[in-house]
Design a protein around this nucleic acid. Structure first.
Lengths: 137, 137
DNA sequence: TCCTTTACAAATAAAAATTATCGTAAGGAA
DNA sequence: TTCCTTACGATAATTTTTATTTGTAAAGGA
């Protein structure tokens, strides 16, 4: 069966194995998720899965541009499906990561900072830390 | 002069040991530096230093607000002396990290993003990845 | 000064995270 | 289906990080 994930993998010259499509399914379901949790979740539908397989595939899919690493202060990195550039709101209480659109002004401002420094900008990583609505109490 | 670091430590309720002032001296000299490299450098002036001591002290100094962790895509976290909020320009070729002033507009824009999401903003992490002037060739 | 208390560093030791190896199995093109 | 290539699973081996224990030194009080 050619699922949405199988196509995504093939579009990046990767074979669409069951393990990989399951990993992608879990990542999409969570939005942002750490390695250990991916292992935990995928194991539920594929008990014989090896943790090494997760590591290998995550690394590979990051290399191929299917996934993006989201390094976070004080935590292990989380991973998300690569998508249009955006901002992260990270709750320091519950750990939730939310995506927010990157507004044009901020994009332009940062481009300008890079430019005036003789720096050729490739991509941004804009993380805002604080308390989400639920955790503010 | 190491008294500068001794004062910094004391201001955060930490004792000014030789090891700690040396760690701080190395971090300031490099600007941004990973654990392993700190160990390598401090070992030069203090051969019997244990790597566990580095970890313990880095963790402690981050907790106390003397240091800031800078997590970077595809690398181990680097550490810097805590200072006024700023942007990082990270060269994906040579790995150099440069500090840039955070302009008022960007600061306000991000505050607004947080606000309209019901998010109480605590601190930002704005990293720009690309090629530094030297690496553009 | 001497004693007591506390904190620290060093040295392990232990645990956790990540990467490598290799025989077998599965994907995909023809 | 057949064949070639690549991925998986099962370790094993490393690396990274954290915890524990012990000896020493510094700090403060009598």
């Amino acid at each position: 069966m050619t699922t949405e994930y199988a196509q995504l993998l093939k579009a990046h010259a990767l074979k669409a194995t069951f393990q990989r499509t399951q990993i992608l399914e879990v990542i999409e379901r969570y939005g942002h998720i750490a390695i250990e949790k991916i292992y935990e979740e995928v194991s539920k539908v594929h008990a014989s899965l090896s943790l090494a397989t997760i590591y290998k595939n995550i690394l590979l899919m990051v290399e191929k541009g299917v996934l993006t690493e989201v390094p976070i202060i004080g935590q292990k990195s989380k991973y998300e499906i690569a998508k249009e550039e955006h901002i992260h709101l990270i709750c320091t209480s519950c750990g939730t990561v939310m995506d927010k659109m990157l507004d044009v002004d901020t994009a332009q401002d940062t481009e300008k900072v890079a430019e005036t420094s003789g720096f050729s900008l490739d991509h941004r990583q804009l993380n805002l830390y604080g308390l989400c609505e639920a955790c503010r109490g």
